[in-house]
Write a protein that binds this DNA or RNA. Structure first.
Lengths: 163, 163
DNA sequence: CGACCTGAGTTGAAGAACTAAACTCACAAA
DNA sequence: TTTGTGAGTTTAGTTCTTCAACTCAGGTCG
């Protein structure tokens, strides 16, 4: 029997990681989701080296996850800030999934340092319950376990000869 | 008004990334979820350098995401394989989230190369519908958007002076 | 027995990436 | 004119990756 294997390099996970898989990238996105906008904010929050921060921001802007927007404070010249695009905001589930994994298996003895809550931006009476990531299929089956899932070739699949 | 900011370094995302944030780590986990077990399988599927693969596997084993198990093929000596622990399998949502992001924003023109489907391991009539990651709060509100969510300090939070 | 083969690593040299600290640049305020 | 500030850039030193060659333990072939 000849088995065909999906080429693991032609894969959206690999492509995603080429954008956000470098050191600091996801932490920069996390800080942006938490409201950071300016170069110095990212720098002081994360303690990342300045040249790397400049490189990472450029990568994220080029990839379309962030955008460089001019701003000007009164009595100061124009500077630039960085904000997430929709594409960048769409990394939220990835970050929540990582957070959850870290909380579950690598937790601080004191417990998690951050809890993500259901609190819509403009809602006077927020729900405030903790948020989790769940896997759900298009038929509505929810809370799928890792064993309930398999990978199948999609339209863009390339195959490898199995030798 | 003095605002307190959660220390971004004392964070489960950062801790999670210290284990799986290195180049190749998540791809190794992905291949393991897809059935790879042996050193040579990871090597030939991913094209990763052998020494790095050895280092990464060791990191994953040390962190508890994988385990090194002896195996012996008939007429061959004992060798070692690597398999995911529960902790390692729990990275599935993270990988699905990354896959989804990559598919949405960095797709191959032909379409996704991999589709994750709801197909329980031992089920003769699988559902087979595509699987997505969704954010859901403990009160049951599902499909939360990035704006519906905020980060709040947890029991292990450290704070920074805002200067 | 001894030469050769295989899978699973290890070692070493060259190149790429990361860090930290100093430096530049454009403008504003004193 | 001098000083200060945010936003980078440059540079030198360290660490990480890659690639290729080598080791190691056992099995097979002649």
């Amino acid at each position: 029997m000849e088995t065909r294997r999906i080429d693991p390099v032609n894969c959206s996970v690999a492509r995603a990681l080429s954008v956000v898989g470098e050191r600091w990238s996801l932490l920069i996105v996390r800080e942006a989701l938490d409201g950071a906008r300016r170069f110095g904010e990212f720098h002081s929050r994360l303690g990342i080296a300045r040249n790397l921060l400049a490189t990472r921001l450029e990568t994220l802007v080029t990839a379309g996850a962030m955008r460089r927007v001019p701003y000007q404070e009164p009595g100061d010249r124009q500077r630039f800030a960085y904000e997430l695009t929709e594409q960048g905001k769409a990394l939220r589930p990835t970050l929540v999934a990582l957070l959850e994994w870290g909380d579950t298996y690598l937790a601080d003895p004191q417990g998690p340092s951050v809890i993500v809550r259901h609190r819509p931006v403009e809602d006077a009476s927020p729900c405030d319950e903790p948020v989790k990531v769940v896997l759900e299929c298009a038929a509505g089956h929810s809370h799928l376990a890792p064993e309930d899932i398999c990978r199948t070739p999609g339209p863009g699949a390339r195959f490898l000869e199995s030798d």
